[in-house]
Amino acid sequence: MYEPNRTPSSHKGSVHSTMAGTTSDFPHRSREEELDIQLAGHLSALLAVTDELRGPAPSADLDGAAARLAQQVTRLRGGRTPARAATSAARESRLAALHQRAHSLAGRALVVAASRADTKAAILAAERMEAHAAALAEEQELSTAG
């Protein structure tokens, strides 16, 4: 059976009330600002995985991708440079998992970039998806051939 609350509502008189005529003390962001934050987050995560991949499998492609990702994150964050992961000596057995993670992150970044019509970021994300898909296919060929 229903029993009414015996304590006053925590929402009564709340500063965060959304009723007409009341003001709020928390900032509001536009949809575009929210998408910028999401896109910067996905690209930052992709940059971290790219940096991790550069340790065991250094290549000019990964170096260039890392530089372009850092540039996009800096742009989206209003000039603040992203934190970079130190290249590590990841085991060869982890490469497939890293490429899979990078492919997923690039896909998420592509969805957000397309949603906010950010052509540069969308192209970069699509290129990274293709590169990581190719790396996964190559690793699978090597594992089945061996």
Rank of each mutant, 00 (worst) to 15 (best):
A60R: 13
E127Y: 06
L124P: 03
D63L: 08
Q72I: 00
S10F: 14
R68G: 07
A45M: 07
G78D: 10
A121W: 01
V15D: 12
L43P: 02
S24A: 07
V73I: 05
A109D: 00
F26Y: 14
A109K: 00
R128Y: 08
L43W: 03
A135M: 01
S9D: 15
L76P: 01
L35M: 13
A126Y: 03
T87D: 08
S30N: 06
K120I: 15
A96L: 06
G21P: 03
D61C: 05
G64I: 08
T18L: 14
G78N: 07
M1W: 11
I123R: 05
T81E: 10
A131H: 06
R31H: 14
G79D: 05
H16K: 14
H99W: 11
A125Y: 02
V15T: 13
Q38E: 14
G64C: 04
L76C: 03
M19V: 14
R75T: 08
T50C: 05
S88R: 14
R6Y: 07
S17K: 09
S143E: 14
E141C: 07
S88D: 12
A125Q: 05
A131W: 02
A20Y: 13
Q71I: 02
Q100D: 06
A96Y: 01
A122C: 14
A145Y: 10
R68F: 08
E33W: 04
T50P: 01
R94S: 10
A65D: 09
M1P: 11
K120N: 15
A113R: 00
Q140H: 13
T50Q: 02
D25F: 09
I123G: 06
L95R: 00
L142T: 12
A102P: 02
Y2C: 12
E32A: 06
V49C: 00
